[in-house]
Design a protein around this nucleic acid. Structure first.
Lengths: 210, 210, 210, 210
DNA sequence: CATGAATGAGGGTTCATTCAT
DNA sequence: CATGAATGAACCCTCATTCAT
């Protein structure tokens, strides 16, 4: 009926966007091809003329999510490594809290994918990229001198990711009222405090933040 | 074949145990009522005479998992709070790594439950109990003097839980080869180091462990 | 609605019978599970509670067809081998011609099964049993003396099967008006004549080829 | 990519050839229009601009197959009718066995076409032509004197076709290891022996039946 | 309480065919 | 004529859940 003829690239974008929104709202299992089609405004087979299977579509969506998240991470304007780490951490917190942004919720829903379809594994693999991103920043900071030379870039990177996961899981399980911004920031202080060159470094509540 | 007439309580236990094993192996969606029945050795409607719906059964299983995990936590023989925290942390790491133990894997599969069925929320709620357990130990430690008086019991508790989650997610996404015992232990060092009363307290790699 | 509760064995019989009739009428591809269910008077999933897949159901049907055909073959009352062969041959002809009997038509539709599903192969394998049946009869005849000692039981058996196939294919392709009973009987004469002990009538191996 | 503008006749040829190969490999149902288009290197609607429907295309392919097979039959150089029959028979055997030749395999896959679409009927009709071809050769042999005057050309023709079918079906059902060249040749001997003028070798019509 | 047999709702996927360009 | 994008109609199969016994 409607049958708006769209260029493939555009349609693919629409489809992935719809999938993203649905995954965020209904989880991976709740995201049926029928629902995607309906949301896009086409019939089900139209979806299949752009993606070979639901699995491929989900993988594409997962990749899109990661690309966007990494883009957010990489756009930090700060030159100082420590400041960049802090800002990226804060951005993630903001993303999770945002009502409009389905990026992070969707991302974590992928853990819910049926095991054995490779979605979780892709999720893991792409998280390793995030770890590397962080580690690079830390290493850069060590070169700059803004991070202590004894720091272990990978370990710090993992702690940052660990903090992300904590925020995500807390959000997903509906207890973000308890693990709130306040606590999240304090964890950030702990991590960054452990690699800041300064003097008194027990990165407790009072310290660290202005 | 002709199934013996077991006391209800025992049957319920069997059913929940079977569910637990299946969730660990196949995920929540992969755990069908038929499979549960088969594993227990009864027919499907028999399951329904014990649990009103799959959802209820899953909730019961989730509770069982938590009870067992808390039992493990509470059975630590150490009197010293700091030592208890460390041991509990180590036990969790061991649990995640264990091939035989389906407790932790199952636990985290519950995140994969379809949103809106209340399973995730229960998961969150029960995690809050874990937080409280940890916070109690920390408070006890502060009373004992084995933990510094400036410590914030809740925050420390959350960091411990955060570490659990990190281990779980890493395991689930198949990257536990990268976030390994070594890193996990260092994170434990960082957390405990931040509340240990000692002198030099930059809880880095060298420190903290024998 | 209807939901007549039937014992499994009976239902399975119904299902296979329905499948048999449908295969005969619509071919293997045209025999959908939905049509089978409708014909039996149950819903589609009911079919699946009796047979694990369409393929299994088709195999069961194929086997049923063969069992029945072999039963027909084996029920010949004649003691004389030659007479038995002739009667079996005539029975097959009658079966093919019969409007009511869907046995042979169904049988041959199985050749139309999608290649690679193993149905054709099963068809072949079970035809080998027919060959063996025939060969046994021929060998018996040789012992009796009603068939010449130079006969090759296997070769004769194959010729009988070849004749069946000819009837079947002619029927399937709608040219049984041309390859009719008359011709079919003459082919039977040729085959049996070549092994009858009578006077000089033997176009065997030695002859004919250089 | 950008497909050259080929003359219609040539395109049609390409399409039919592709269909032939696909039918031989995947069966009639497995031969999708999309696959044909892909193999030819054009888009799906391009196919439809040459053939009104899949059915028409299949009919054209079926005709092509028959034309080629008859061409093979008619190209026998022998003048002697008996020798021609033998050679044609041998050629068919070779064709069936050949890995490269998709002619005969494709031909027989058409039996698998959904009944009621007229494909099988065409298959039958065209087989009648083969019968006539054979009958003509036999009649010619009778005029030549190389075939006995009592022979029934049509009956002999049918026996030859029957032998083809046997080879085809055996091949299709994967039991060509049992019905092999040896047996096939012996059947040819039986057929030709029954019409060869030589000495005493005639299991003909008159005999055998009461 | 337990069983055997059934159902309703829906899931992913495929395919011949047709528009609009 | 050829193309890119879309559709309608099926198809096989699965699952939580419920009767009748």
């Amino acid at each position: 009926m409607a049958q708006e003829h769209l260029p493939a690239e555009e349609r693919r974008q629409q489809i992935v966007d719809a999938t993203l929104a649905l995954v965020a709202g209904y989880g991976v299992e709740g995201t049926t091809v029928a629902r995607i089609a309906e949301r896009v405004g086409v019939t089900v087979p139209a979806i299949y003329s752009h993606y070979a299977s639901k699995r491929e579509l989900l993988l594409a969506t997962l990749d899109l999510v990661f690309d966007r998240i990494r883009a957010v991470h990489q756009s930090s304007p700060h030159a100082d490594a420590l400041a960049r780490l802090r800002e990226i951490g804060e951005r993630h917190t903001a993303m999770v809290a945002s009502k409009n942004d389905s990026l992070v919720p969707a991302l974590f829903e992928f853990i819910a994918a049926p095991p054995g379809e490779g979605l979780r594994e892709r999720l893991g693999a792409r998280h390793l990229e995030l770890v590397r991103d962080y580690a690079d920043i830390v290493a850069e900071g060590m070169r700059q001198g803004s991070i202590i030379p004894e720091a272990d870039p990978e370990q710090v990177a993992w702690l940052m990711v660990s903090r992300h996961w904590t925020e995500d899981v807390a959000h997903l399980t509906g207890i973000s009222g308890h693990w709130d911004r306040e606590r999240s920031m304090r964890m950030l202080d702990l991590i960054l405090g452990s690699i800041a060159p300064d003097t008194a470094r027990r990165p407790t509540t009072e310290a660290g933040r202005p």
